[in-house]
Amino acid sequence: MKDSQTIGTPVIDARGLNLTFQTADGPVHALKDVNLSINKGDFVSFIGPSGCGKTTLLRVIADLEQPTGGTITVNGMTPEAARRARAYGYVFQAAGLYPWRTIEGNVRLPLEIMGYSRAEQAERAARVLELVDLKGFEKKYPWQLSGGMQQRASIARALAFDADILLMDEPFGALDEIVRDRLNEELLRLWARTGKTIGFVTHSIPEAVYLSKRIVVMSPRPGRITDIIESPLPRERPLDIRDSREFIDIAHRVREGLRAGHGDEV
């Protein structure tokens, strides 16, 4: 698996991707002619209004939806083969921790399923919980933690096994702005420490600009990519970078892209 990820080979590669849902109100074109490649170690954000297919695209990468046209490879394999090889960790909008398991038990869940030894489960759980700053909360149950802490636990759960890709679907969407800022900072630090390839769905422009190396702007009906922005911001990003000229310029370009996507609908 590692050999296929040499420099220059994209980790995720979509060509002419199409997905049409058949609904009672007729077909819905969720994805139309999506071309995208994500390189190893990238942090790529997908931004757009609801219905633009950003979550659908993430779910296609994760083999949770099947495209109706085009090709996509993950780690050089089909998404299904990649899923079976446990190539990615997925973080959902809600933390979705099992209420009957402790925080540590929740982090162990994927490890139990994947057949890690008990000793290794304990060692890995301790390591990732420290990584997301939840050391000391191992024996707590989810209801004893705040929403932000629960979402951190769910990120730890996705990091616990050796997946090089982290797919995140609006993970901080339900949190307040202060908690969100802190988690954004922590996520960047985590990205720097682990070197994972991250796909991140959001509808917040500042969040996308602050986090990403590349921003994929999408628009709805049919869901398609309207702009891909390479961020000139440095990897090291303190929170106040959001007041800098470059940051404001990128945010402006994202906003323009979103507006253009909406324009041809009216």
């Binding site: 083999d63 079976r84 990615y88 960790g89 997925y90 959902f92 809600a94 869940l109 399923i113």
Partner: peptide, 11 residues
């Protein structure tokens, strides 16, 4: 969401 999570683990 909870069943999807287990699908991503290939459970």
């Amino acid at each position: 969401m909870q069943t999807d999570l287990l699908t991503t683990y290939n459970a």
